[in-house]
Amino acid sequence: MSKPKVAFFDFTSCEGCQLNKLNFENDFLDMLEHVDIVEFREAMDDKADEYDIAFIEGSISTPTCIERIHDIRRRAKVLVALGQCACSGGVNAMKNLHQPDWVREEVYGNEKYRFPSIPAQPVSAVVKVDYEVRGCPMSAPEYLHIFKSLVMGRKPEIFDHAVCVECKLKENECVLDKGMFCLGPVTRAGCEAICPGNGQYCTGCRGPISNLNLEGAVEMLREHGFSETEARKRLHLFSANELV
């Protein structure tokens, strides 16, 4: 069996997901024996061949992004969105809540005409995405699961339940109970509740579960002493596109 060819590509992002990969490099080494990495961060000017698996990091936020992602899609058998920017637009999508001109002015000032920009979109808004590794940064356990599944030729198992489930399985102390803000009850699991497990609150970086009860979530946060404004702002931090 020949090894699958794997490539990684960057779009609009902080590259924190790539960085996160280094955090579990040791686990990852075993996996690398089963694949050939053919592209890593490179632009595709060499008209390289085809990819069995293309991992895409970052959101689509410029006109050139669109061309490039179409090109990658054409060459990729399986395309995986890596990290929240690629999956939902992520933090970048917060700009979509404002006037585009104002945003460009604010960021680039007088130079704004040199930087064409479009609303930050998930990769799936432009091309078909086969699988998503959510999270900001992307969740290591889910990434390894999907990577491994694709190498095995297996459909990955993606959770659609809340982070609360993972907290309860680990018997973590509830951070909401301690008076902290937490989006665990409505955020998609797959991160093994790494934040609440370490005494931090869930920021909702993996986006909402598919049956999000948005008004219920706002009400829940109010019950715990957080204002509606704060609740909505924080819910929008990573999920502006999904909650509009």
Partner: peptide, 8 residues
């Protein structure tokens, strides 16, 4: 209406 379906 209140339930978030978290499964706790």
């Amino acid at each position: 209406k209140k339930c978030l379906g978290c499964g706790t």
